[in-house]
């Protein structure tokens, strides 16, 4: 079986490190990006199976990237998981409106996170 490819867009290096560890242990191939500005282009270029997007990013916000991805047919159906540290209802609504498949508040439990990632691929 070809390794599932996840692209992680997260500017906090330590959180990125943790997620990478968790997903690799679960058998994923993980690419990480720290800047929002180049994220959309990378996604289009590398075609990952799952995109994990942080809400607050330098360069370009997670919501904007998500809206751009949903706007073209070839990436409209790409599974996207949204992460946020604010944990407020408003942010969740904004993410869902923009077309996020799943919304995860920081901090999260490792098991829940991995399960959520798997569920998005299967669905």
């Amino acid at each position: 079986m070809v390794a599932r490819h996840a692209m992680l867009i997260e500017d906090e290096p330590n959180i990125a490190e943790a997620i990478r560890f968790l997903l690799r242990r679960d058998g994923w191939e993980v690419t990480t990006l720290g800047d929002g500005g180049v994220a959309e282009a990378r996604v289009r270029e590398q075609r990952p199976d799952l995109v994990i997007l942080d809400l607050m990013l330098p360069g370009r916000s997670g919501i904007e990237i998500l809206e751009a991805l949903r706007a073209t047919p070839d990436t409209a159906g790409l599974p996207v998981m949204m992460l946020t540290a604010k944990g407020q209802g408003r942010d969740r609504e904004a993410a869902e409106r923009a077309g996020a498949d799943l919304f995860m508040a920081k901090p999260f439990s490792n098991a829940e996170f991995v399960a959520a990632a798997r569920s998005l691929i299967r669905a």
Partner: peptide
């Protein structure tokens, strides 16, 4: 405040679980 507190918490929780 929530963001500033939760960000370091995320790393701490994830790595401590690991």
């Amino acid at each position: 405040i929530s963001h500033e507190l939760r960000t370091p918490m995320t790393s701490i929780r994830a790595f401590s679980e690991i």
